[in-house]
Design a protein around this nucleic acid. Structure first.
Length: 271
DNA sequence: ATGGGCACCTGGCTGC
DNA sequence: TGCAGCCAGGTGCCCA
């Protein structure tokens, strides 16, 4: 999916167009997302006003009068703002119609995305309650990561991708952050040194921050709220660059598989 | 608790 | 040209 920078870019892109607007209709063309979306949701949403659009981890939270929509983009999803009635394309699964004449439209070829309706405190929703800290906030520190990693044998790359440890880091940015930190992805999390945790925290913050500034990374499906792709792909050091020369030392980038996900690293720059 | 593997889906590319 | 096989920004769930 869309990792944190893509979700954050989407949040910023949709916010101004939907906050303060009232929902006039909810058109559900395909309820079979990650979890089935009940068609009766339309009746609930119509008439409610949008108060805010927030992000927690890779979830977008759309706060309405009587609850929040929890939207996830899965691997291939995107949310765009466009005039209501724009021609529908394949895999356009729902439209949230607004009193401005615009709509929020969700497209997701693989249907791993989700849309949930939550009344009550959204932070306490079962999907959100146990998530780790936000990587761009103060609770994400080298000390925290080190303490939680004690005796953990999991590879540091998989540890960083564990949303209960820290949120928002997915397959692309895990490889990229470890490259920038100079740490090999297969090292056991429990054996990473304090100085390395320092570099990892700095690298995660830096790579996510830069990616947000570039509007995220588009590999295949992802587009921003206005339909444009993200430009961070050009800044990737290792991801999908197996066999190509390291941009720092010219050593060929290596590929391996961890937990059925591709990992990329430079054997010279990362120890 | 922690770790590994599978499942959910479609589409694009590769190689025979 | 056709088709099988493999791969893809995620993550919940079941099992050891």
């Amino acid at each position: 999916m869309p990792e944190l920078p893509e979700v954050e870019t989407t949040r910023r892109g949709v916010r101004a167009a939907i906050v303060g607007r009232a929902v006039t209709a909810f058109d559900l063309r395909e309820p079979r997302l990650r979890w089935r979306v009940e068609p009766t949701l339309a009746r609930e949403l119509v008439g409610q006003r949008v108060h805010d659009v927030r992000r927690r981890a890779k979830y977008l939270l759309i706060d309405l009068d009587r609850g929040s929509l929890i939207a996830h983009l899965g691997m291939s999803g995107s949310l765009r703002v466009m005039p209501a009635g724009s021609p529908r394309l394949l895999h356009d699964h729902y439209d949230l119609m607004l009193d401005s004449g615009q709509c929020l439209r969700f497209n997701d070829p693989r249907r791993f995305g989700s849309l949930l309706w939550c009344t009550g405190p959204v932070e306490e929703h079962p999907l959100l309650a146990a998530l780790g800290p936000e990587p761009l906030e103060d609770a994400f520190t080298p000390g925290y990561l080190a303490a939680r990693a004690k005796r953990r044998k999991a590879a540091v790359k998989q540890y960083l991708m564990d949303q209960h440890v820290v949120v928002g880091v997915g397959n692309i940015y895990a490889s990229e952050a470890l490259f920038r930190a100079g740490v090999r992805p297969r090292r056991a999390a429990g054996r990473i040194k304090p100085a390395e945790w320092q570099r990892i925290v700095a690298a995660v913050r830096q790579v996510l921050g830069e990616a947000i500034r570039q509007g995220g990374t588009t590999l295949r499906d992802y587009v921003n709220a206005d339909g444009t792709p993200g430009y961070f792909r050009q800044k990737l050091f290792v991801y999908e660059r197996a066999g190509e020369p390291c941009r720092r030392c010219r050593t060929p980038i290596r590929h391996l598989v961890q937990g059925q996900r591709s990992t990329y690293f430079c054997p010279e720059c990362q120890k």
